[in-house]
């Protein structure tokens, strides 16, 4: 099944899993491959997942809600959307333009959050499987 993605090739005969090794090596399976199951349940990886979710879940809900609100108001509250704000510029056009602004704000916030909170944690998780990467 992995033939299509041969970035790391599995040896034909798996090596021996030894259970006497220290704890960190559990993250590398006997055949020298990363033990993804073990990494998935490791504390560092779960912390990474929590941090990812903490940002993308609220941010996604927020921007979708804001977009849907704009679309629904345009469809069903045309009167409100055509209230003039600055001269002939009305509420709808302003809200539409603000969609661009919020998109940029969320994008930059995500880039910043990734750099500060996600990337270091990714490095931590990668360190768990480091020896393997060198073998591969």
């Amino acid at each position: 099944m992995t033939k299509a993605l041969p970035s790391v090739s599995r040896p034909a005969t798996p090596g021996f899993a030894t259970f006497e090794e220290p704890r960190h090596s559990l993250l590398i399976a006997g055949d020298g491959e990363p033990d993804f199951g073990a990494i998935q349940t490791s504390e560092d990886f779960r912390a990474l997942k929590r941090r990812v979710t903490r940002f993308i879940l609220p941010a996604t809900l927020l921007f979708l809600a804001w977009y849907v609100a704009f679309v629904l108001l345009s469809a069903y509250a045309a009167g409100f959307m055509s209230t003039p704000l600055f001269g002939t510029v009305n509420v709808g056009l302003t809200m539409g333009f603000l969609q661009f602004v919020t998109t940029i704000i969320i994008t930059m916030a995500y880039a910043r959050y990734s750099k500060r909170k996600l990337d270091p944690q990714v490095e931590k998780v990668r360190a768990l499987a480091e020896t393997d990467e060198e073998l591969a």
Binding site: S7, V8, P34, F36, G37
Partner: peptide
């Protein structure tokens, strides 16, 4: 699934 999730978030195993 474990491989995909770990690899997706961290790149481990992707080279």
């Amino acid at each position: 699934q474990a491989e995909m999730e770990v690899r997706g978030l961290t790149g481990i195993g992707s080279g």
